[in-house]
């Protein structure tokens, strides 16, 4: 049984519009490699040049954020669901309204 990977809208242009794809079990690093083989350029969307996870991409195995477990070494086994989500962040960066 493969691992299901849920693809967020922002990455679907790299997966021919697919919202969910199947990959073989392995570490998250392995899974990203499989996706990059199938969809060239995918890895660059998710990983930095030094091979770590972009700070604005969240990856989960089932309900767990891999940043709080073993990051890219976290394993996804048969029947697991891996979800990718862009982080949602920002802020005013100021406590006054001068400058507008």
């Amino acid at each position: 049984m493969p691992v299901a990977v849920r693809i967020p809208t922002v990455f679907r242009k790299f997966t021919s519009g697919e919202s969910q794809v199947q990959v073989d079990p392995g570490t998250i690093g392995d899974l990203i490699g499989q996706l990059d083989n199938r969809y060239p350029g995918f890895k660059r969307q998710v990983l930095t040049d030094d091979g770590s996870l972009h700070r604005f991409v969240n990856v989960y195995v089932n309900d767990e954020d891999i940043r709080y477990i073993e990051r890219l070494d976290t394993r996804a086994t048969e029947g697991d669901t891996v979800s990718l989500l862009p982080s949602v962040a920002g802020g005013s960066d100021r406590l006054d309204d001068r400058g507008h």
Partner: peptide, 24 residues
Amino acid sequence: AAFHSHTHTEAYPSPTDIREKRDD
């Protein structure tokens, strides 16, 4: 949609909001 507050500034995207915007 996402929402957040600006406690002391206007309801308009700051440079940080624009830089950190990732989802469509």
